[in-house]
C-alpha cells in the first residue's frame, strides 16, 4: 500500500506556517526540510513567521529591517527547495513572553491550516514555561507538526 493511500487529498493543507528564529536558524534545519517536502506534496504555500522586538537586536536594528531580512530568508528557502513562500514578521514589545500568544494570533491572521516547527525534547523547565510548540498546539485549531531538535 502506498504511504499515503489512494484516498489522499492533494489539497489537505493549503497554507503551512513555519515559526522561525532567525538568530538560531541552524537548529531548524530538519524542520525546514520537512516543511519543504510537505509543501511540495500538497502544493501548499509556506509562510515563515518570526517575532521581533521593537528594540535593536542581533538580527536587525529595527522592525522594518527585520521584516526585510525575513523576506529574504523566505525567498532563499523557496529558491533552494522549490516551493512557494511568503514571510510574515510580527512586532512585539516583549517577545520573550508574548511569543506564544503572538504566534497563535498569527495562525488565524494568515489563515494557516498546518504549523510545522522545531521544538526541543521536553524537560523540567517546561513545567514552568511550556515549550512554544506545546503552547501553540493548545491554542490553535490548526494541525501542528513538531519536529524534534537534538
Amino acid at each position: 500500500m502506498p504511504l499515503f493511500g489512494e484516498q489522499r487529498d492533494m489539497n489537505m493543507y493549503k497554507h503551512i506556517m513555519v515559526p522561525v528564529d532567525l538568530a538560531h536558524i541552524d537548529k531548524s534545519e530538519t524542520a525546514l526540510v520537512v516543511v519543504a517536502d510537505l509543501a511540495k506534496l500538497y502544493d501548499a504555500i509556506v509562510t515563515y513567521v518570526a517575532i521581533t522586538s521593537n528594540v535593536p537586536g542581533p538580527i536587525a536594528h529595527n522592525p522594518e529591517e527585520f521584516a526585510h531580512k525575513l523576506a529574504n530568508f523566505a525567498k532563499a528557502q523557496g529558491d533552494q527547495r522549490g516551493h512557494r513562500t511568503a514571510a510574515h514578521s510580527v512586532v512585539s514589545p516583549d517577545p520573550a513572553v508574548d511569543l506564544d500568544k503572538k504566534l497563535a494570533g498569527t495562525v488565524d491572521e494568515i489563515g494557516a491550516d498546518l504549523i510545522v516547527m522545531s521544538t526541543h525534547i521536553p524537560n523540567m523547565a517546561d513545567m514552568l514555561l511550556p515549550s512554544h510548540g506545546g503552547a501553540l498546539a493548545r491554542h490553535t485549531g490548526a494541525s501542528v507538526f513538531l519536529v524534534r531538535t537534538h
Partner: peptide, 15 residues
C-alpha cells in the same frame, strides 16, 4: 504586524 511578500520588498522606509 508587517506582512511582506517574496519580491519587491521596499527598502526600509522611515528608518
Amino acid at each position: 504586524s508587517d506582512e511582506t511578500a517574496n519580491q519587491g520588498i521596499p527598502a526600509p522606509q522611515g528608518t
